[in-house]
Structure formats: structure tokens, C-alpha cells
């Protein structure tokens, strides 16, 4: 029993590390920081100036929203590529042809991306606090950590779903990219969800991240657990649904590809 448990844990970790390391092969610390923070940081600055031009008075609103999207982006893009690129590299047949149980192979890929996104976001908060003189005095750090971590996990659900889509189409990455861009409008990153037209607000609440971002904003405003409990619960529920959908889709694609022989067709 113990041996089996150890084997499963080892398989999870090995899948996680190899998948992460194989994709990034980080060559130096500078490369790591710029690859993680570079683009989101400059995008945030761009939105801040856009906001300044149109008279949006609260640049910190944009800063916080964009920082919260870092772990989510990592979860989505990293995991989606970790699954999808197996197809491009021709290694998918070997992964699926192995006798390893599917859950560790699938979920194992997420661990390091979630941790990485979480650490990057905290690092981002630190840097932003210095640059934008954010007042973090009244913030409950445990709750902020919880929110950030939860965002990384729920976003991984989207990553699983689009990663699985990448296994059957070479445009999977583009579809995800388009979706991620839409998130900049929908989940309350740059402006409140209330500013959206009614129909888009409904779409926003069907997505992971929306409630998580709201909860994190409340925490940064000094709110306690009771104020965010329902939002956190809602976020966890929506995120779980996406993870389950991604896993089910992955299993379905595996079954389908065995019948049609389309596994490694690029």
C-alpha cells in the first residue's frame, strides 16, 4: 500500500518537474524573471496609461488586476502548452502509450506551473508595492495567499481544457491565446465587471477568476474571511468544474485518437 502510494507521488512529481523543466529549460535567473514578469508588467503599464488618458482615476485597480492575472496566465498557458506541445514534439504517443495511470500524468503537469505562478504573483506584488507605493498595511496576507493560490488552481482548469483541445487541433494555442485576451475584458482585471454590458456580465460569472479576482481585491482593501467566503466558494466550484471538464475531455480524446489514429498528426 505504502509502496504504491510512494510510486504514485513519485510519478506526480516526476511528471510535474520533467514537464515544466522540459518546456522552459531556464538558462539563467535573468531569463526567468523577464520571461515571467516582463510581458505582464509592460502590459499593465500600457493599461495604466490607457486608463490615465481616459480619466480612469485608480491606477492601482489596474495594477492589482493584472498582478492577479499572472498566476492565472501561468496556469492557463503553461499547462495548455505542457499538454498540447506533446503533440507538436511527437512525444504524445509515448506518454499515452505508457502504462502510467492517467490522473498523475494529467494533473502532475500542473503542480509546478501553479507553484511558479503563485511565486511570480507574490514577487509581482512585492515589486508593485515598491513601485506604486501600495499600502499593504491592513492586508491579511494569509487570505491574499489563499486567493492567489486559488486563482492559480482554478485557472489551471482552463489550461487543462485548452491543452486537451490542442491535442486535436494545431490551432489550440491560438484559441487559448484569444480566450486569454478576452479575459482582460471579462473577469474584472482592468475595470469592474459592472462596467460590462449585461450579457457579458453573465458570461463573466460563468468563468473562473472573476470571483477570485473580486475576493482578492476585497482582501487588499482590508476585508476579512466573512466578506470573501462566498466568493472563494464560488471560485472553487467553478474552477473544479473546469478541471473536471478538462480531464474528461482529455480521456475522451485519448479514446477517440486510439480509434482514429490521429494522435501525433501535426
Amino acid at each position: 500500500m505504502i509502496r504504491r502510494l510512494v510510486r504514485t507521488v513519485r510519478l506526480y512529481l516526476a511528471q510535474a518537474w520533467l514537464s515544466y523543466h522540459g518546456r522552459f529549460s531556464i538558462t539563467n535567473p535573468f531569463g526567468y524573471i523577464t520571461s515571467k514578469l516582463g510581458f505582464p508588467f509592460f502590459l499593465m503599464i500600457f493599461f495604466i496609461f490607457m486608463g490615465k488618458f481616459v480619466g480612469f482615476s485608480d491606477p492601482l485597480y489596474i495594477v492589482i488586476g493584472n498582478l492577479l492575472l499572472i498566476p492565472a496566465n501561468n496556469g492557463m498557458a503553461g499547462i495548455s502548452l505542457a499538454i498540447g506541445e506533446e503533440r507538436g514534439w511527437g512525444t504524445l504517443s509515448y506518454v499515452l502509450g505508457s502504462p502510467a495511470p492517467r490522473a498523475p500524468v494529467f494533473i502532475g503537469r500542473a503542480i509546478f506551473y501553479i507553484l511558479d505562478g503563485f511565486v511570480t504573483a507574490l514577487l509581482g506584488f512585492g515589486i508593485a508595492a515598491i513601485i506604486f507605493r501600495m499600502n499593504l498595511g491592513q492586508v491579511d496576507f494569509y487570505l491574499l495567499t489563499l486567493c492567489t493560490f486559488l486563482l492559480a488552481i482554478t485557472a489551471s482548469g482552463i489550461g487543462f481544457l485548452f491543452g486537451s483541445i490542442s491535442l486535436i487541433t494545431r490551432d489550440g494555442w491560438t484559441i487559448l491565446n484569444t480566450f486569454i485576451q478576452a479575459l482582460y475584458i471579462l473577469v474584472g482585471v482592468n475595470f469592474p465587471v459592472d462596467a460590462l454590458p449585461g450579457a457579458l456580465q453573465k458570461v463573466a460569472y460563468c468563468l473562473p477568476l472573476t470571483r477570485g479576482v473580486m475576493a482578492a481585491r476585497l482582501v487588499l482593501d482590508g476585508a476579512g474571511w466573512s466578506a470573501i467566503a462566498s466568493l472563494i466558494g464560488g471560485e472553487a466550484l467553478v474552477g473544479s468544474l473546469y478541471i473536471a471538464a478538462g480531464y474528461a475531455f482529455f480521456l475522451w480524446i485519448e479514446k477517440r485518437s486510439m480509434q482514429s489514429g490521429t494522435l501525433d498528426a501535426v
Binding site: F47, M50, G51, V54, G55, F56, S57, T178, Q181, A182, Y184, I185, N190, F191, P192, A195, L196
Partner: peptide, 19 residues
């Protein structure tokens, strides 16, 4: 699509700012 998203963010930001 990307220009459309950026335009949408610009206009919604403007709306959120009360314009």
C-alpha cells in the same frame, strides 16, 4: 481579434471612468 480586444478595453475603461 487582438486589436478588437485592446479597443474594447480602451472603450470600457473610458466608460468605467464616466465618459
Amino acid at each position: 481579434l487582438q486589436p478588437a480586444v485592446f479597443s474594447a478595453v480602451g472603450m470600457l475603461l473610458s466608460h468605467a471612468a464616466g465618459n
